[in-house]
Design a protein around this nucleic acid. Structure first.
Lengths: 116, 116
DNA sequence: CCTTCGCGCAACCTTTAGTTGCATGTCGCG
DNA sequence: CGCGACATGCAACTAAAGGTTGCGCGAAGG
C-alpha cells in the first residue's frame, strides 16, 4: 500500500519546516539557505540540512552562483508529490464511504427484521 | 500558513507505520495493539505507542473490552484530516499554476519587446 | 488453581531535527 | 592587490521520536 518511494516523499513533506520552506520557495521564488533562514524560526544550518533532504528526493534543485547557492522548486516533481498525497487521501475517503454504505445497509436490515 | 494543529495532524499521518495502521483499521475494522502488530513489521509496543499518538490527536478512539482494548477510526476526524491534507496540496497546486501563468506572461512580454 | 494472553511501564538504542563553533571561498571596495 | 564582510560547508553536541527488549499485572479459560 505504501512503497519506499512514497515513504521518502511523505517524510520529506511531513516535516513542518520543510513544508514552509516549499511554501516560501513557491511564493517568493528561488532562495538560498541564508535567505530562507531569515524567514524561518530556525538557523541557517538547519535550513541547509532540510534543503539537502528536499534535494535528495528531487523536490527542489540547486544552482551555484558565485558564493551563493540558489534553490528552486522542481514543479513537475512537486506536482507528482501532491498527486501521491491526494491519492492516499482519496483511498481513505473511499473506504470511509464504503463503510458508511455497509453500516447503512446493516441498519436497514435491522429495521426490516424488527417486525418478525 | 501552517498552524500547530495542522502540524500535529501531519506528524500523525506522516509516519508510514501509522498510515498503514489507519489503512488496516479501515479495511479490517476495529483492532487491538496485538492484532495490528501481527500484520505489521514492528512489535506490539511500537504499535501501542502509535495508537497512543493517533488517539491523542483524535483520529482513533479506544474502547476497553475485558483484557483487550479495541481501537477504531474516528471517521469524522479522519475526513477532516484528509481535507486538511488536500488543502495544502491545492495551495501548492494553485501556486504552481500561478507561477506558470506569470512565466508565460513574461515570456510573451520578452517576445514583443525583442523587436525594439 | 494456575497457565496463558493482552496490556502497560521502564530502560535502552538509533535516527533526525536542531544547535553552536569553526574553516573556507567569494565578493566588493579602498 | 589586500582585507573585511558575507554565504557556505563541515564537525561535534543535544533533544526528541521510533523502535527494541524485559518485566509485572490483571483478566480468561482449561
Amino acid at each position: 500500500m505504501s512503497t519506499a518511494v512514497d515513504d521518502e516523499l511523505w517524510s520529506a513533506i511531513g516535516d513542518p519546516t520543510r513544508r514552509t520552506m516549499i511554501d516560501l520557495l513557491l511564493s517568493d521564488g528561488p532562495g538560498t539557505a541564508t535567505s530562507l533562514s531569515r524567514r524561518l524560526p530556525v538557523t541557517r544550518q538547519a535550513v541547509s540540512k532540510h534543503l539537502a533532504v528536499l534535494d535528495r528526493v528531487g523536490l527542489i534543485h540547486a544552482e551555484s552562483a558565485g558564493r551563493e547557492r540558489h534553490y528552486q522548486v522542481d514543479e513537475a516533481q512537486l506536482a507528482r508529490a501532491v498527486a501521491q498525497l491526494s491519492a492516499v487521501g482519496s483511498t481513505w475517503d473511499a473506504r470511509l464511504r464504503r463503510i458508511k454504505r455497509i453500516a447503512e445497509a446493516i441498519e436497514r436490515n435491522r429495521h426490516t427484521n424488527e417486525g418478525e
